[in-house]
């Protein structure tokens, strides 16, 4: 099986702090992969480096066999990205945003308009299509962002915390679209710390802690009979159960 994404010793430091300390990530093509880890484990930094948004201090990253930093044209044509917290072009309407994105990638206008219309319908955004993105809610933003990332039919899709702040109805729409996408042989990699969601959706999981990959493989292998949540806590080393100290917390004055 070929790998959709493979990194070798990916490394990044911010001043004295090492954010990513030599990550060897491997995600087979066609998988629905989850990248999990506690806050500050380096998930976002890793994804930013693979998508060419952040320059690594060392190591290499490949998407579909193309080096991200030596062959950016090939890589950028193949990936779709939805970063966390970053903004969209807020002063365009949802429809205009999709059309801009598609045409920027050289897709003919008529084709872009057709795809945009379908995506808006699937994402249930038709009513809001002509409103400015600046007035969208969090869920609507994630949906229009995902639509923009899917528009050029990428072979690998990177999503950073796609479900954070999204209501259950929108989340359901998102997962349905992503399932259809991977069923067609494309790859999805998303970061999250909601274990239930990862367990439900993914067939491949990479666990990060302190800038390293601590476990990686098919989800059943990583779980090894436990729930993913328990496996995760075992892997990253649960830090006490919160009973020592804090005696003042909840004490009535």
């Amino acid at each position: 099986m070929t790998d959709a994404v493979r990194t070798h010793g990916l490394f990044k430091r911010f001043g004295p702090q090492v954010a990513v300390a030599g990550v060897d990530l491997a995600v087979p093509a066609g998988s629905f992969a989850g990248l999990v880890g506690p806050n500050g484990a380096g998930k976002t930094t890793t994804l930013s480096m693979i998508t060419g948004l952040l320059r690594p201090d060392g190591g290499a990253a490949q998407v579909d066999g193309f080096d991200v930093w030596r062959d950016p044209v090939q890589v950028k044509a193949r990936i779709g990205v939805l970063p966390e917290g970053l903004r969209l072009f807020e002063r365009l309407s949802g429809r205009e945003l999709l059309i801009y994105n598609g045409r920027l990638r050289g897709i003919p206008r008529a084709e872009v308009e057709r795809r945009a219309e379908e995506l808006l319908q699937v994402m249930d955004l038709t009513d809001a299509a002509d409103k400015l993105v600046v007035d969208y809610s969090t869920g609507m933003r994630k949906k229009i962002g995902l639509a923009a990332a899917l528009l050029h039919n990428p072979s690998v899709l990177f999503l950073d915390e796609p479900f954070e702040g999204v209501d259950p109805v929108s989340a359901n729409t998102l997962t349905e679209v992503l399932r259809r996408f991977t069923a067609s042989g494309s790859t999805v990699i998303f970061s999250s710390h909601v274990m239930d969601l990862v367990e439900r959706l993914c067939d491949w999981v990479s666990v990060m802690n302190g800038g390293h990959i601590v476990a990686q493989g098919p989800i059943a292998e990583v779980r090894a009979g436990r729930s993913l949540n328990q496996a995760f806590l075992d892997l990253v080393g649960a830090r006490g159960n919160g009973e020592e100290g804090l005696s003042w917390l909840g004490a009535k004055p």
Partner: peptide, 13 residues
């Protein structure tokens, strides 16, 4: 500003 990434993930050359 913060929306520049949308261009950055497209522009390779």
């Amino acid at each position: 500003g913060r929306s520049l990434w949308m261009n950055a993930v497209v522009y390779g050359s």
